[in-house]
Design a binder for these strands. Structure first.
Lengths: 189, 189
DNA sequence: CGAAAAGTATACCGATCTGTTTAGTTTGTC
DNA sequence: GACAAACTAAACAGATCGGTATACTTTTCG
């Protein structure tokens, strides 16, 4: 993998997150990455290909950081489930938090571009799968249902933090998560 | 209020929702509204002013429809709270559902444009206020907290429906809402 | 009626967009 | 040390962007 190629992806991720996809031009990405436009079009056939590569790379970065953070919190599956929202809070208070890159991408390409939609859906699905994995390690009657509920809270806290500029939505979600987990455990136990 | 002006706003709302804000050009809006560009710039100083007018108008339309639907469901505050998610489901199954216009707007203008951000925040705040109003009519120990939790579920279901193309997220949110409302009532009663 | 307001179509402006081309330079490797 | 791959800067294309100007027509209303 080329160094320049990776520079382009890293720069593109930063710019897309801060200024959106339509709001970020090819020239600016190439400039900021200190790469000529020709080289950029050598590595990526089009802007859409660069967008897709950026989303895929960010997918890996994010999920890696997410899972590592949550797993490091505790060895208890219950604590890890709650820990999701500690991770969220840490994410939200970063001054370069501009919401979820994949939600934003879908927002800009809702009416077209199945490839972009697909990458975003894959990301969300994998996050949901990870949450389900954690829930499966706990003793609840309906793991799929609890996992769905927690994933919904996670998404809700992201959007609320983004729109309202309020990182505390992570704490709100955590309260709800505690109640829902307790409820699921009570039914099962 | 001019007829042409309203045509522009109506058309702009449709196009912005389907194709995004950067993804929708001035020319296309004027064409589709059957209004000349000159007239358009007579009514709106700039694209941003048209965006703001569109967001404000849609705010009114949406909240009106939302509150009317929910209030029509039942006279019981508890049923109305649950009814929020029936409204959401109806919204999501529309084939012209492209997510929440305000969330999408923030996604495109996260790094600038305080005016646009402000309109979006106002919208979300007013929806939250309405939910709190409903919660206040029920007998719970901590109305603010329950309202925050339900608002979070609402946002989560919107984004999940949008990204995953899955209107059932409304039903998932409804299940969570029932548990959270029961929990809040039990504490209080 | 007559004038002001609001409308039309269309050409134009400079800037920016994605993408290509030209011509020349660096770099790594056998 | 030569050759191919990767790179550079910069000009160029054609389209589209937001926004303005020109010249004319329709509508509204005292």
């Amino acid at each position: 993998m080329s160094r320049k190629r990776q520079d382009l992806i890293d720069t593109a991720i930063d710019l897309f997150r801060a200024n959106g996809f339509h709001g970020t031009g090819i020239d600016k990405i190439a400039d900021e990455a200190h790469v000529s436009k020709k080289t950029m079009y050598h590595h990526f056939r089009s802007k859409e290909e660069l967008i897709l590569a950026s989303l895929r790379h960010y997918d890996g970065l994010f999920r890696n950081s997410f899972m590592k953070s949550v797993n490091d919190i505790s060895s208890s599956p219950e604590d890890r489930l709650i820990g999701i929202f500690d991770f969220a809070h840490q994410w939200f208070i970063d001054n370069r938090f501009y919401g979820c890159m994949f939600i934003n991408a879908i927002g800009e390409y809702s009416n077209q571009d199945t490839a972009i939609r697909s990458v975003c859906q894959d990301f969300k699905q994998q996050v949901a799968d990870y949450i389900l994995e954690l829930v499966n390690s706990t003793d609840v009657a309906d793991p799929e249902e609890l996992a769905d509920l927690l994933a919904l809270l996670f998404e809700g806290s992201i959007v609320t933090a983004q729109v309202m500029g309020n990182p505390d939505s992570a704490e709100t979600a955590k309260k709800a998560a505690r109640i829902l987990i307790d409820n699921a455990a009570r039914k099962s136990g």
